[in-house]
Design a protein around this nucleic acid. Structure first.
Length: 695
DNA sequence: GTCAGAAGGTTTTTT
DNA sequence: ACCTTCTGAC
């Protein structure tokens, strides 16, 4: 269907958003309100009806999946949309840097370091620092870049002391010497490039007259700065997002970007998309009731024409085992597309083993990622080293894998020689080989020669053949094929084959290699088992964004687990509340909530009180389910007098410090003789009242 | 270099 | 509880 016909099927707000021209536009699109549709129709309309050159449109998303979907849907309406620049923020940044490599101080063959590579690089600078410390530095540096901060800037926002500046400076110097970039650089470097180079800035602005941004609530400060650099007074900027779905603060996303968009871009028009096409009314009521408790929001109320629908249900359960039973019971009683949502990945385990036991096929999203597997990272390191012989991180990963006698001592000799060879590890290896032991020297020479020969052979043929031959020649294929566990080995070989296969679309040239590496580094979202169409999906709440299911079970609604942490940071609680909103609005037809009285966490059993979010839902919106599974114990309803003595099997004697109702639950707080204070639900946790005589 | 056992540390993770 | 990382002995 062409854009014009498509327009007729939109609701008035959607149509207004598509037709809007002039100044900046902020589309506040509630969950399930058809925002992707609006963007894609807008792209098709610009091209097909307004005659806009598709090459002058830039559409930015956060995930490759979203970009691919946008491209496909726009092209279905308007074939010329194939020429629109539709990319993720990072991929656009990488493209801009590759295109202006010299001006950005980079080699065209630069590779992108992922988080693990960043830690490895930090380790070369701080060899004695434990991994946890390095990971913290890596996080802080990454966060600093999210805020466009450089080592010389005030970093107190990220970390109080002076040490971060020094670490960041040393890290960046080393990274620049190597000539690679990290994820943060893919945004920050383009910002700096556009700021510093007027000609490139002018050229880029002249090319993109229309800039569209999806999921704007997830943008960070650096991405905002990039938009600022891309847009002049004449650029048409349209951002789409939902402040209530901003859930990546911990990664540097700034809700303020969307909250203050109108001030940042004067003359902004705001259009709200509030009609939801996904969920039933009662489900939206639950979502709205909770998210309304947030102070920092623009405010929007979802509504739907979908009347009826079953009442969302809350089950207060004794523990995880009952929770698992409850979910399986729902699934087997009435099979249909169901997603089991949880806050932390650790919670998936019990569900997984129960589903296996019950013989119910399931799909787990986001567990072990393809590109994080050892064998794949090895193969990637091989290619990265071919692309950039200054890549010390990749060199270190594979130079002695499989073991060929190049130990720590030999490595040190090689890296000591680096500065004499412009950082080229292959040259340094050749030069240092003479100073090594006979065995290490020969091995190092052979390793270096293999990589060098491979680099020289670039220029034709298929990248898949190139990759396989090299990985085999280096002994990595054999290493992984002959692990102790034949099942593991089998899967490793299959992964390597899949990796090689992915490279077959690229030529074995320098450009082909760089392109393939970029694709792989920037698109690691694919799951190993995405083809499996099971009815049951296990997934973290974060991972559900953009997805929808007939039936959703939100599990683990317990204070301390969800929301996580205490009351210290109100912003954090608001973020968790948005996560609840995201989770609930994934459901089309049925919503179930569960909360456990106690659960095993970090090896010990801990008591939990129902999540505050449950208390924020008016009682009439929820049906209270009785527990399935095994029977409950301890009759509820009995009051515990404050000051009265109680006995708990694990904690011993204590005094009641408070006793109140939370929803329909009686919550008792006890201070034990040990000094420990804990809350209990007497309905699930045996808490024996002790008369004064027994003390 | 490899292995076993100890110690440590545990949110979420589009790129 | 569980998984990764560090350590010391062979």
């Amino acid at each position: 269907m062409a854009a014009r016909a498509e327009l007729e099927t939109l609701n008035p707000a959607q149509r207004e958003a598509v037709l809007h021209t002039g100044g900046a536009l902020l589309i506040l699109a509630g969950a399930g309100s058809g925002k992707t549709r609006v963007i894609t129709v807008k792209i098709a309309y610009l091209i097909g009806e307004l005659g806009v050159d598709p090459r002058s449109i830039l559409a930015v998303t956060f995930t490759n999946k979203a970009a691919a979907e946008m491209r496909a849907r726009a092209a279905a309406m308007e074939p010329a949309a194939a020429d629109v620049m539709i990319r993720t923020f990072h991929s656009f940044g990488a493209w801009l840097l590759r295109r202006n490599a010299a001006a950005a101080g980079l080699d065209r063959g630069y590779a992108i370091y992922d988080d693990d590579d960043v830690i490895s690089l930090l380790r070369t600078i701080y060899p004695d620092e434990p991994r946890g410390g390095l990971a913290r530095y890596a996080r802080q540096i990454s966060r600093a870049k999210d805020y466009t901060l450089r080592p010389g800037d005030d970093l107190s926002l990220i970390s109080p002391g002076p040490e971060l500046a020094e670490i960041y400076r040393a890290y960046q110097r080393r990274l620049d010497e190597i000539g690679n970039v990290d994820f943060g650089d893919l945004i920050l470097k383009p910002v700096e490039l556009l700021r510093a180079d007027e000609a490139i800035r002018r050229r880029t602005r002249q090319r993109y007259r229309y800039v569209l941004v999806d999921e704007y609530q997830d943008s960070n400060v650096a991405q905002y700065e990039l938009l600022k650099q891309l847009c002049d007074e004449e650029t048409y900027l349209c951002v789409v997002g939902d402040d209530d779905q901003s859930i990546y603060r911990f990664r540097g996303a700034e809700v303020r970007n969307i909250l203050t968009f109108s001030e940042s871009f004067p003359g902004t028009m705001v259009i709200k998309l509030e009609q939801n096409y996904r969920s039933t009314g009662p489900i939206l009521d639950v979502a709205s009731a909770v998210v309304q408790h947030n102070l920092g929001r623009l405010g929007k109320t979802l509504w739907t024409e979908r009347t009826g629908g079953s009442e969302p249900s809350l089950a207060l359960l004794r523990d995880q085992d009952e929770e698992v039973d409850y979910c399986l019971d729902l699934i087997s009683r009435e099979p249909r597309e169901t997603a089991i949502l949880y806050r932390t990945n650790a919670q998936s385990r019990l569900f997984e083993s129960a589903l296996i036991r019950a013989g119910i096929p399931y799909r787990i999203v986001g567990s072990l990622r393809f590109y994080e597997r050892e064998e794949i990272k090895d193969a990637l390191a091989v290619l990265k080293l071919c692309a950039n012989p200054r890549d010390e991180v990749s060199f270190r990963r594979i130079v002695n894998k499989p073991a060929r006698g190049i130990g720590a001592k030999s490595l040190e000799t090689v890296t000591d020689a680096l500065s004499d060879h412009g950082g080229d590890v292959l040259e340094a290896t050749a030069a240092a080989a003479a100073g090594l032991s006979r065995k290490a020297g020969a091995a190092a020479r052979a390793f270096g020669a293999t990589i060098r020969r491979a680099r020289e052979s670039l220029g034709g043929g298929k990248l898949s053949d190139f990759t396989e031959a090299l990985v085999r020649e280096l002994g990595l294929w054999e290493l992984h094929a002959e692990g102790q566990d034949p099942i593991v080995a089998q899967s490793k070989v299959e992964n390597l084959e899949e990796f090689v296969n992915a490279a077959s679309l690229y030529p074995a040239t320098e450009e082909g290699l760089a392109e393939f590496l970029e694709l792989v580094e920037l698109d690691r979202s694919r799951e190993a088992d995405e083809s499996l169409d099971a009815e049951v999906t296990l997934i973290t709440m974060h991972n559900t964004k953009g997805l929808e299911f007939d039936r959703v079970i939100v599990t683990g609604l317990e204070e301390g687990l969800f929301p996580r942490g205490g009351d210290e940071d109100p912003d954090e609680i608001e973020e968790e509340r948005r996560l609840f909103y995201v989770a609930v609005t994934r459901a089309r037809d049925e919503l179930f909530l569960t909360s456990c009285g106690y659960r095993r966490l970090h090896g010990r059993v801990m008591d939990f009180v129902p999540s505050r979010f449950l208390g924020e839902i008016p009682a009439e919106l929820l049906r209270h389910a009785t527990a399935g599974g095994r029977g409950r114990q301890a009759p509820g309803g009995e009051e515990y007098p404050v000051g009265g003595a109680v006995y708990h099997d694990d904690y011993g004697m204590g005094v009641v410090t408070s006793c109140r109702h939370s929803g329909s639950e009686l919550v008792v707080q006890v201070r034990f003789e040990t000094g420990r204070v804990a809350k209990f639900l007497p309905r699930y946790t045996p808490l024996e009242k002790v008369s004064g005589d027994d003390w």
